[in-house]
């Protein structure tokens, strides 16, 4: 069995968001780049499954659609423990491009399980996993919080509004993962970092998937009015404000 983990390269979650060029572009100056947090958890789970599989899972590969600048992030995934990596050399202009490029690659290099995150923390598309499944005509399960494999039988927990469900699925399939899939992301060890340098990072040419959407302008939310402070001895005033001013009580 082979597992593919799709990783996106995103700004660190504490990044101060700024835009340039008349608010048409995200300002990447002094941004730290990381593996999208869901993808890091997905990779962690893939490695746990491989280690527990007694050899039936041969390989965990990571793939990224992106320019050369995303290679440090891909190397980090190798340092965490992925066996090899693929970078599809294209600008990830929108989800259609990313899913199209990924589908092209997977058609030629099939995997049993493809893992994606529920969203990228930059553009919050929540699209790539589902689009990829559709392009490949594969089943998809979204909001996956647990993934187990026992004797080649796959069971999945999926979160629903107000509860959860347990599903089974045939392979190949796409799992779109969220909170719960792994407890903590794995941190690369020194040895992992050394080994990552020697692991294969294959760069493949883009197939030329076209975007269907385009970001034309960004905006920051309007500045928030100052917080109205209420004295702790005057809780009644807070209740009155919520009732009369905010009208939420």
């Amino acid at each position: 069995m082979k597992i593919l983990v799709c990783i996106s390269n995103v700004p660190d979650t504490t990044t101060k968001i700024r835009f340039t060029d008349d608010d048409t572009r995200f300002d990447t100056a002094s941004v730290q780049w990381i593996i999208n947090p869901w993808d890091e958890l997905a990779l962690t789970r893939a490695l746990e499954l491989k280690e527990g599989s007694g050899g039936s899972i041969e390989k965990v590969t990571v793939v990224n659609v992106g320019p050369k600048e995303s290679e440090p992030t891909i190397r980090k995934a190798l340092a965490i423990g992925a066996d090899d990596a693929v970078r599809i050399d294209a600008e990830p202009l929108d989800a259609h491009v990313v899913a199209g490029e990924l589908a092209g690659h997977i058609r030629n290099n099939p995997y049993d399980i493809v893992l994606c995150g529920i969203d990228s923390s930059d553009y919050n598309g929540s699209l790539v996993g589902g689009m990829l499944a559709e392009l490949l005509d594969l089943p998809s399960v979204s909001s996956v919080s647990k993934l187990n494999i026992e004797n080649d039988e796959i069971t999945i927990n999926r979160e629903i509004d107000g509860g959860s469900e347990i599903l089974s699925t045939e392979t190949p399939f796409v799992a779109i993962v969220q909170k719960g899939i792994a407890l903590e992301p794995r941190i690369p060890s020194m040895r992992g970092i050394m080994m990552a340098r020697k692991k294969p990072l294959n760069v493949v040419e883009a197939a030329g998937a076209e975007p269907l959407t385009e970001f034309v302008r960004f905006e920051l939310p309007p500045p928030k009015a100052a917080c109205k402070m209420v004295d702790e001895e005057n809780i009644r005033e807070l209740v009155a404000l919520l009732h009369n001013e905010a009208k939420v009580l």
């Binding site: 259609h96 598309g125 699209l127 689009m131 559709e134």
Partner: peptide, 24 residues
């Protein structure tokens, strides 16, 4: 809706209809 169900279905439907998808 931009909830678990919407996120699960919108991308698949977008591909089928060759439609541009905008979420949230």
């Amino acid at each position: 809706s931009h909830n678990a169900t919407g996120k699960a279905l919108a991308p698949r439907v977008a591909v089928r209809l060759k439609a541009g998808a905008v979420t949230g």
